[in-house]
């Protein structure tokens, strides 16, 4: 029984690791945003990044998808390895990488097209798919995102007519359609009402069997509810990383404790 409280023994082992971040630093416009972060993110688990605003959790998430490429003022050191391959290595196809690592953003961002076309977007980028096969994938993706029953009769209506929660699930379905290995979620429920939030959380738990999920959230209860592992970041540094059960009952460090329980630091 004692052993279960000892975080170190429960940390994801190297072999189970899907995503491994190794002394990764990131500077934006000369300002250091991430300081030598090192953590292993386990396969088929939900890992949550929590921390105060501006702590770098979103930055880290975006770095995994190489979204910081879009800004040419960033520079980085260290490595991020996906299944043993350095995502910054020069012979990596960034588009292919981003297909393998899906990303869902804070505000639902369905494209201004039909529900069907939204889900088909990623497939069309990859080239032509036979219509029947595409239909199958779209149905599968929407079913996986727990949206199929709600939209199957209006696939060709504009995606912008869906509710916020439905839009967010549509975005998840759109990402799932290209069959990523990792799904990054950047505060996916922060703009949603409680019921939609629960639906998204339920979905996150269900998706665990298919892929690895990394979740950034402001809502600590949410992290506690859905994640298996939690990393607490503050001011660009990894403060504490451990099984969610431990982090939320008995964190090792006062800093984490103070943040989790809402104390003055």
């Amino acid at each position: 029984m004692l052993a279960s409280n000892q975080g170190h023994n429960n940390m994801p082992h190297q072999d189970q690791s899907c995503l491994s971040i190794d002394a990764f630093s990131l500077a934006y416009a000369g300002k250091q945003a991430l300081h030598e972060l090192t953590l292993e993110i386990p396969r088929h688990r939900v890992t949550a990044f929590i921390g105060p605003s501006g702590c770098g959790k979103s930055t880290l998430l975006r770095a995994i998808n190489r979204l910081h490429d879009l800004n040419d003022e960033t520079s980085h050191q260290g490595r991020i390895m996906v299944e043993g391959i350095d995502i910054h290595s020069p012979d990596i196809d960034v588009s292919e990488l981003r297909r393998r690592i899906g990303m869902v953003f804070q505000t639902p961002n369905p494209f201004p097209m039909s529900i069907y076309e939204n889900v088909a977007f990623g497939l069309r980028l990859q080239g032509r798919t036979a219509k029947r096969k595409r239909d199958d994938i779209i149905e599968w993706a929407l079913t996986s995102a727990a949206l199929w029953d709600e939209v199957k009769d209006r696939l060709h209506q504009s995606a912008w007519q869906l509710s916020g929660g439905q839009q967010q699930r549509l975005v998840i379905a759109r990402t799932l359609a290209v069959q990523p290995e990792i799904l990054l979620l950047d505060e996916p429920a922060s703009a949603l009402d409680p019921v939609s939030t629960l639906k998204i959380e339920e979905l996150i738990c269900n998706l665990k069997s298919q892929l690895t999920l990394v979740l950034v959230t402001h809502n600590m209860q949410q992290a506690a509810r859905v994640s298996d592992f939690t990393a607490f970041l503050s001011q660009g540094e990894l403060i504490e990383y451990g099984p969610t059960d431990q982090l939320f009952t008995n964190p090792r460090l006062r800093h984490t404790e103070n943040y989790i329980t809402g104390r003055i630091n």
């Binding site: 981003r98 505000t107 201004p112």
Partner: peptide, 27 residues
């Protein structure tokens, strides 16, 4: 056009040109 639209396309593996022609210009 919100950046989230561009990022959404990019995150699905669209190149800059694809994002431009398929998302940004129609919008």
């Amino acid at each position: 056009i919100p950046d989230s639209q561009r990022e959404g396309a990019v995150a699905l593996g669209a190149t800059r040109l694809e994002t431009l022609t398929r998302i940004v210009l129609p919008m």
